[in-house]
């Protein structure tokens, strides 16, 4: 019953996350937008789990574990970059330029 609206909300949140990634230059905020996208997907999983069984919830559990690990490592990387370049603005981080 709540499946359709949940998926709609999930879609909106995910798009907002993507737009946020495109919009921001601060690496930490971009990171937060990525978390937003992860949560939008989590919502889809939970909504579908209501109809297809609890496996969807298990997946969300794993996503959270991965998100936690990702946050730890990602923030550590940002920390290291900041120490190196005194900035977290991704426009100034372009070592991979061709």
């Amino acid at each position: 019953m709540l499946l359709g609206p949940s998926l709609a909300v999930s879609a909106i949140l995910f798009s907002l996350g993507v737009a946020g990634v495109l919009l921001r230059r601060n690496a930490i905020v971009i990171f937060m937008c990525v978390e937003l996208m992860l949560n939008a997907v989590n919502l889809s999983f939970i909504a579908l789990a209501q109809q297809l069984g609890p496996q969807g919830q298990v997946i969300v559990f794993f996503v959270m574990a991965v998100a936690a690990a990702e946050a730890a490592v990602g923030l550590a990387i940002i920390l290291a970059i900041y120490r190196h370049k005194q900035t977290v603005d991704i426009q100034n981080i372009n070592l991979l330029r061709g």
């Binding site: 495109l22 230059r25 971009i30 991704i90 426009q91 981080i93 372009n94 070592l95 991979l96 330029r97 061709g98």
Partner: peptide, 11 residues
């Protein structure tokens, strides 16, 4: 051309 695409800009 390929290297022009590699701007190094995450955006």
């Amino acid at each position: 051309i390929g290297s022009r695409l590699q701007t190094g800009q995450v955006g």
